[in-house]
């Protein structure tokens, strides 16, 4: 029978707990606003970070509720990474104020506005006001739907993680390179689909597909929303139907959180196909990471317009 000394057992247990605790606290705690940022942060951070996200991939990122439980998530975060360009303006200030965590507050070492590393499109020029709808005055924030921006996101995480956790820079570097390698290999796989998509007229619900269009070459000929964030009106739907008929657009793409019935109506009038595409990781079944997000969106679109 094993002779157990209670004091030694207690000491061993305490030592083990201390080791576990120090290991846990050694990891960077990363919270992101979206699942796409989360996935890339996790890919770069690997086992050196613990990552979580606020929004879900099937949720409209403009209208996430600032639940107090998110405050708890942010209280102990080392890094708060967000899309920026006012995408999260409807809820992020409440959470950041509520978290009372200077590391992730504006100016803190962990405050990571990812849009800073992005080439932003659709920056309004001249006068801007809300008669234009929910226009983002700093530019279109849906940049993650371009793999080149996926690379920029990964490089930004590499720089930030290395800055905050220099001893693991080599691991972050290797992870980031592996991510870019996987993305590069995946891109080769969907080149034929891109050829099929290039120049094809499509209708999109919201301006969220602008970067995707820049990458794939699809031609957005009309939006279901008359202005960003404004629900389609009957008179606007007439305009959309006319645009579909005149351009020969075969597909209406929308996110899973929009009202598909309206798109179905236009499809019925025009013969176009309604295609629900995932705007983010986890947005639909099978979209498990950034690579499958891009791969499936491109493949599904190509299958319809081919």
């Amino acid at each position: 029978m094993l002779d157990m000394d209670p004091l030694r057992t207690f000491r061993a247990g305490a030592l083990l707990a201390a080791v576990v605790a120090s290991t846990a606290s050694a990891q960077l705690r990363v919270v992101t606003s979206t699942t796409d940022l989360y996935d890339i942060a996790q890919a770069v951070g690997g086992d050196k970070v613990t990552a979580s996200h606020i929004g879900e991939g099937y949720q409209d990122p403009h209208f996430i509720e600032a639940k107090p439980s998110f405050v708890l998530q942010l209280q102990r975060a080392d890094v708060w990474a967000f899309v920026g360009l006012d995408l999260e303006i409807g809820w992020m200030p409440l959470l950041i104020d509520g978290a009372r965590n200077p590391r992730i507050a504006f100016g803190g070492s962990g405050y990571l506005d990812v849009s800073r590393a992005m080439p932003v499109i659709d920056i309004p020029r001249g006068a801007v006001d809300r008669s234009l709808g929910d226009v983002h005055s700093l530019g279109n924030p849906h940049y993650w739907l371009d793999p080149e921006n996926g690379r920029r996101m990964a490089r930004l995480f590499l720089a930030k993680f290395s800055e905050l956790d220099a001893k693991n820079t080599a691991a972050y570097t290797a992870n980031e390179k592996a991510f870019e390698d996987r993305l590069g290999a995946a891109e080769k796989g969907w080149q034929a689909d891109l050829v099929a998509i290039k120049g094809k007229p499509v209708v999109a619900w919201h301006t969220s597909w602008r970067y995707f269009a820049e990458y794939t070459g699809m031609n957005i000929v009309a939006y279901m929303e008359p202005k960003p964030g404004v629900p389609p009106s009957p008179s606007h739907l007439v305009t959309v139907i006319r645009a579909v008929k005149s351009t020969g657009a075969k597909v209406i793409i929308l996110e899973p959180f929009y009202d598909k019935k309206v798109a179905d109506f236009v499809a019925k009038e025009t013969g176009a196909t309604v295609l629900v595409l995932s705007p983010s990781v986890g947005g639909m079944p099978g979209i498990v990471d950034y690579l499958t997000l891009m791969q499936k969106d491109i493949a599904q679109l190509a299958a319809v317009v081919r």
Binding site: G108, D113, E163
Partner: peptide, 12 residues
């Protein structure tokens, strides 16, 4: 040597 904290900015 850890990098200097990124300077916060309000946009591009």
């Amino acid at each position: 040597v850890p990098a200097a904290p990124a300077a916060p900015t309000g946009g591009m």
